[in-house]
Design a protein around this nucleic acid. Sequence first.
DNA 1: GTAATAGTTTATAAATTAGTGAACTATTAA
DNA 2: TTAATAGTTCACTAATTTATAAACTATTAC
Lengths: 106, 106
Amino acid sequence: MINKKIFKLHADVCKALGHPLRIEVIDLLQDKELCFSDILAVTGGLKSNLSQHLSVMTKKNILKMKREGQCNYYSLSSDKVAQACQLMREVLIDSIKNHIGLIEKM
Amino acid sequence: MINKKIFKLHADVCKALGHPLRIEVIDLLQDKELCFSDILAVTGGLKSNLSQHLSVMTKKNILKMKREGQCNYYSLSSDKVAQACQLMREVLIDSIKNHIGLIEKM
DNA sequence: GTAATAGTTTATAAATTAGTGAACTATTAA
DNA sequence: TTAATAGTTCACTAATTTATAAACTATTAC
């Protein structure tokens, strides 16, 4: 199946959204670009860990990176990423609302 | 950090998109609802495997399920899922275009 | 009631992903 | 040219996810 390959590629891009730290980075980069150490200052944790997560997202075209002097600046590859992320956040919010609705009927 | 819990929940919903079979199912359910065996007929594979993937997506509010007689009908929980998925597909397509662009410059 | 259909659940093994720390590379400054 | 800064890469372990097959549940038909 030729289509199965597309599904794999598509899933790989989506998979790159599926980690708390990566969501936090996308959130941070909504409206600005930041360099590695600025991101690290906000997210915390080990630099090696952050670096690997940024690398995953950059390879999947979620982020783009620009080297400037000694700093690496990261930004969203396009606004589509922010939009997709926002839609999925709404799916989460709807889910939580449904759960609250169920509890209130008890 | 209170926010970290939100990032985890948000990432968990996104993670539910990150599998080829799950992308294929979302694709299939764009405009219609289908019962389990209809989905299985298209995707192929083991019923137990499909069932587990549908269960993951249903728990994360990506899909909703309706039992009718002996059939279980699945559909997208909302159009937001289809939209987010389409945006991520565009991120993939942009990425492929970039790669093609690079090759053409060689 | 017995069998068939439609699917879910469970257990387990295999594969993938994530976190850690040390080593490494590149740029700038003294 | 030596040191400091900024980050990446690598090796390894731990945790999570996935696929498979068998067992199980619920509904319908005979």
